[in-house]
Nucleic acid binder design. Structure first.
Length: 536
RNA sequence: GGCCCCAUAGCUCAAUGGAUAGAGCACCUGCCUUCUAAGCAGGUAAUCCAGGUUCGAUUCCUGGUGGGGCUACCA
């Protein structure tokens, strides 16, 4: 059983009570009662359905109350809410489900989904900087959420290992190797100095492109290590050069032509979005008049490749600096995929960096940035990931480095992790305190006190949090939830003793309850890629 | 100029169009001889402005104001 099952039975009841189609009753959903209402579940449906049912909300509420199973002890509240309570037995059963059912978040609509989730995809021209942490947190947490919902997810990193920037990278490395300054518009960061120091002697006879290849290979190693330290493991690192080796851009162009989505004008080849589709405002160049492909064409080819690999959904996570690129990519990929909703671009706003009183512009070329590695080394992956995950993708974020380093203890992540540590500690101490941690209790005798009930109910809401995350393409609901759950636990902990040998029934029940709490904390932290420590 | 995002407590953030707007940090008052005080209990404190839609707007629409970003036959 789960909230979804409860909702389902309530919808059945509503559908038959009001003689409406079952689908219409789908609008009925369970929500958390406001703090001043003493109930477990609230239904606002009578208020919102009043218009379509052409009845007064209060009247609907009364009829709904009469229709729902008696075990829910329904109550009506003005202007038309119905509030429910779960019985102790029901609540106990739900806790058992949390502990025993590893697939409890699986949803049928995700069972056949095979999602490709591409994120970070930073150019291999320098170390990952902290802004990549935001995309990495977002992408990886989403991947974990979709997996929890039952989807198959492949995490992918696209590497631009060709083109001018990579050429410039090679020239910059060559210059460092020869003890010179990199070109004006090259890469001036210190990381190329240490890279140059590691070059073999025979590099003096290398052509420029050898330097590029060497630099890219080394940068990829760094990226991989940085991402691993951030607890992100990509299933695939897709090289742009793979596309060209397979002549994918040319094939993509042929496919576009075949579908009448490309045309020639002024010596260039254009993507005909404006004439054929309404998603973009003007036509874009695919092949320049000089004969070279634009990145637009290469990116179309790349996404065509993703489609050919059999993914049912393609999700790209991009920084807001690329938002202008979304309409044309959606126009192109949506059309090639046959359905626009198979391709989704999640945009997150950029991260600005603040150091002291100064807001620093980050630029790899000037070498002025804070690397992700530096940040993870100083404040830890847990605090970083929780911090980034706490905000919706659309918040504009100014990252205060000094604050992050100095006040990492103020990060709510520790407040949440502390719950896990405290519970673990209780379990570890049980035997010593004269309580058998594996002792059974009589389910029929269990009566939840208010703190126990609040805790148990909170655990049930996690499934809603997951669907919120999927709906909004953001993990931030999880951090909010975790902090709220942690507060309930700490409050419970302060009020009630668990390990009381004089009350073995109560102790056994509370250990059972806390086992469920600890599992939910660990699961939810896991979805964020944050550890759940046994002690702190 | 055109387009996108944002504006909630001193600071950083929450809130499928629903009930008395919820947290963390900071500040103030209490609480460790008792399973971890990285904690608990309590207090101060907020929806940028003007209209509109609605039974009901922090939420949706229009127009302001103030911030950030994008606007290449660049990669």
């Amino acid at each position: 059983m789960s909230l979804r099952d409860i909702e389902s039975s309530l919808r059945e009841a509503a559908a038959s009570a009001f003689h409406i189609p079952r689908e219409q009753a789908d609008a009925l959903s369970a929500s958390v009662p406001p703090p001043h209402v003493d109930a477990d579940i609230s239904l606002a449906w009578p208020v919102s359905a009043a218009r379509s049912l052409r009845k007064a909300p209060l009247k609907i509420a009364e009829e709904l109350k009469a229709a729902v199973p008696a075990e829910f002890q329904a109550e009506v509240a003005a202007p038309g809410f119905v509030n429910l309570r779960l019985s102790d037995a029901r609540l106990l059963g739900e806790l058992k489900g949390i502990l025993d059912d590893p697939a409890r978040f699986h949803r049928p609509e995700y069972a056949a989904e095979h999602i490709n989730l591409e994120f970070v995809s930073a150019n291999p021209t320098g170390p990952l900087h902290l802004a990549s942490g935001r995309g990495a947190t977002l992408g990886d947490s989403l991947a974990r959420v979709f997996r929890a919902l039952g989807a198959e997810v492949s995490e992918e990193f696209y590497v631009n290992d060709r083109g001018r920037q990579v050429e410039m990278l090679g020239l910059s490395l060559k210059a460092r190797f020869e003890g010179k300054e990199p070109p004006e518009d090259g890469y001036h960061g210190d990381y190329l100095k240490s890279l140059a120091a590691g070059l073999p002697k025979e590099a003096s006879s290398w052509a420029a492109c050898r330097f590029s290849e060497y630099a890219v290979t080394e940068m990829l190693k760094l990226h991989r290590a940085d991402m691993a330290a951030f607890r992100v493991e990509f299933d695939r690192w897709f090289l742009e050069s793979e596309l060209h080796a397979a002549a994918a851009p040319a094939k993509a162009l042929a496919e576009l032509r075949r579908r009448g989505m490309a045309y020639d004008k002024e010596g260039a080849v254009w993507f005909g979005a404006a004439s054929e589709l309404e998603s973009d405002d003007k036509d874009r160049v695919l092949v320049k008049s000089g004969g070279a492909n634009t990145y637009f064409l290469n990116d179309i080819a790349y996404h065509l490749d993703k489609l050919s690999r059999g993914f049912t959904r393609i999700i790209d996570v991009w920084g807001a600096d690329h938002h202008g690129y979304v309409p044309r990519m959606e126009a192109a990929v949506g059309a090639l995929a046959g359905a626009g909703d198979r391709f989704k671009v999640v945009i997150h706003q950029q991260v600005a960096l603040k150091r002291g009183e100064e807001t620093v512009k980050m630029s790899k070329r000037s070498g002025e940035f804070i690397s992700l590695k530096e940040l993870v080394d100083e404040v830890g992956a847990d605090a970083c990931r929780f911090f980034f995950a706490s905000r919706g993708p659309n918040t504009h974020l100014t990252f205060d480095v000094d604050l992050a380093k100095k006040q990492s203890n103020e990060n709510p992540v520790f407040y949440v992790q502390y719950v896990h540590a405290r519970i673990s500690s209780i379990f570890a101490n049980a035997a010593e305190k004269g309580v058998d941690p594996a002792a059974a209790f009589d389910p029929a005798a269990v009566k939840f006190n208010p703190e126990e009930r609040a805790l148990a109910m909170k655990l049930l809401w996690l499934e809603k949090v997951l669907s919120d995350c999927a709906r909004d393409y953001s993990p931030h609901h999880l951090t909010t939830y975790l902090v709220e759950l942690a507060a309930l636990f700490h409050s419970f902990y302060d009020k009630h003793k668990v390990l009381d040998p004089a009350a073995p029934q109560v102790a056994a029940f509370r250990i059972f309850l806390l086992r469920a709490v600890r599992k939910v904390i660990a699961d939810a932290l896991g979805l964020l890629g944050v550890s759940a420590p046994e002690r702190m």
